[in-house]
Amino acid sequence: MAEEVLRVADLHAWYGESHVLHGVDFSVHRGEVVTLLGRNGAGRTSTLKAILGLVGRRTGSIRVNGVETVAWPTYRIAHLGIGYCPEERGIFSSLSVEENLVLPPEIAAGGMSLDEIFEMFPNLRERRATAQGTKLSGGEQQMLAMARILRTGANLLLLDEITEGLAPVIVQALGRIIVKLKERGFTIVLVEQNFRFAAPLADRHYVMEHGRIAESFSAPQLASKTEMLHEYLGV
């Protein structure tokens, strides 16, 4: 099996007094697409944030490319090769589309060039001169939020609810992009509500509940797990 890009063990996290993660354990190998499934409030977004040090306090172990980062400040962690696409997309309204696109600093060699990015996201080429990033449509903002982390040389992408609130045709386009990114060798963690989007893309699935991993299974086991998923996800 390929090397571990991310290994999370016994991860606890707090926002102020509220204890949101209760011992999360999971791992992601190079080149894999892995999902974190679960209901709202199960701790999926908090898990991504905890990996990046964006929660109030965290304990346990988070190894990124073999390096223990649980005590690191946020701004150092990205440099181990993480690209983060937050829930709500995080497009900056005081920056133009192009400024948004080139904002994240390069953290490693081998990032995609702007030409390659525009080939993958043709809309962004047309809209690059738009003066305010938030003037784009929801789908375009989502594309921009993903495109900007492909330039940086990050190889581990943490994508939070990228399909939320988008039209089916755009969700399909995002699915094709995930496939292309996987082909290019990116390792991807998808936090998804939309299981039908995630199922055909992922190699393995983790199901979260009450701030910990409740179940895990690989893509071929999916058929036998639908019953259980219905129960966890309430779909």
């Binding site: 990046l52 964006l54 400040p73 946020t74 701004y75 150092r76 962690i77 990205a78 440099h79 983060y84 937050p86 995080g90 900056f92 309204s93 005081s94 920056l95 904002l103 994240p104 600093p105 953290i107 982390i149 940086t152």
Partner: peptide
């Protein structure tokens, strides 16, 4: 960008 969302800018490194 940091004025709007400092946490995200930090997450970018």
């Amino acid at each position: 960008a940091a004025t709007e969302n400092g946490a995200l800018v930090q997450a970018f490194g």
